[in-house]
Simulated scan of single mutants.
Amino acid sequence: MNNRTSLFCDTVLAARVERAEAQLITAWNESARGRRGHALGFAIPVAGGVASYAEPDSPINKIAGLGFADLPAAADLEKIEQAYADRGAPIQAEVAGLADPALLELLAGRGYRLASFENVLGRALGGAVEPVVPPGVEVRPCGDDEFDAWLEVVVEATLHPDTQGVPWAEQFPRAILENAERDTLGLVSRYLATLDGVPAGGGSMRITDGVAQLTGAATAPAFRRRGIQSALLAARLADATAAGGDVAVITVQPGSRSQQNAQRRGFDLLYSRAVLTRTS
């Protein structure tokens, strides 16, 4: 792994990653609206991205994927802002550092303010993936019969995040996290990690346009520092390579344990996203 070439991210690659993100959120939103009723949420295409609202406090209530096509028109933003206001929801816009700089100026002029950052890491695929097999740890695809065990360990871990690095600015109720994970059924591939046969962690992945999105991974607090995160990464990277993906990406908090683990596994920092908020 020490001889691995660092992955350089230009605006073309960033556009692919952000487009995959917008596509995932759109599909995820469609599933959530199917559960709740389509009139209660929305997924509005805008300037190559999407404005999504699923339900109160949902992690996919956000505007994503902007800045790599034309700038959004004022009328489109007004429509989106009104849609959030009608639901009493704040607005969150995520803007990649490689997006058109004029987008930030446009949003700032409309009252959006910087709230936090998140980092997008990437690793080129195509070569052999180094296996990671810590003692007692097994990672396997999660079948429907194991979904409840997967959900319990992932949600419990998410509710007790690691404290290294910059903490997540957002916190979500357990019921909302459970809804969000159920809404991804059929959208992502799931992986269950066990330690000595006991569910200890879980992860997921989606491949779009050659981009393998590592859409989440978590380890229950009692099982941390045992190599489970690295094992989950290795298993998904191997499957993404076998499926023909050419790049894997993961979103992390700056300076977090997740970022440290990913960089040890050959990931590079591609760019940061600025998270902007506006009260609707």
Rank of each mutant, 00 (worst) to 15 (best):
D246G: 14
L40C: 01
A124H: 11
L40A: 10
E130D: 10
G216K: 11
F117P: 00
V133M: 01
A96H: 00
S272H: 00
K62G: 06
T163C: 12
V46S: 07
G197F: 01
A74Q: 15
P101N: 03
R190W: 12
A43K: 02
L214W: 13
G203S: 13
A238F: 04
L125E: 08
A75Q: 09
D246V: 10
L66P: 01
L192M: 10
R16S: 14
L107K: 10
E78A: 15
G127W: 12
G65L: 08
P72M: 07
A96E: 10
Y112S: 12
E118V: 09
P45D: 04
A102T: 03
P167W: 03
G49H: 06
G266P: 03
Y191W: 15
W150D: 02
A27D: 15
A169F: 09
W28T: 11
L177S: 02
A43H: 07
A262Y: 03
Q253R: 11
W168V: 04
L237Q: 05
R224L: 05
S58V: 07
A39F: 11
M205C: 09
N3P: 02
Q213N: 15
P134A: 04
R16E: 13
D239H: 14
Q171C: 06
P56H: 08
P72N: 04
A47G: 04
A242T: 13
A96G: 07
A200C: 08
T5E: 12
L107D: 06
L159G: 01
P56Y: 06
P135E: 09
A169I: 11
G127L: 06
G41W: 04
E156C: 09
T219N: 05
G111Q: 14
V188L: 08
D148Y: 05
V133Y: 02
P141V: 06
A54V: 09
V46H: 03
G48N: 04
A54S: 09
D76M: 00
R174V: 11
A73Q: 05
Q260E: 07
R190T: 06
L103D: 02
L125D: 05
D57R: 13
H160L: 14
L159S: 02
S258P: 03
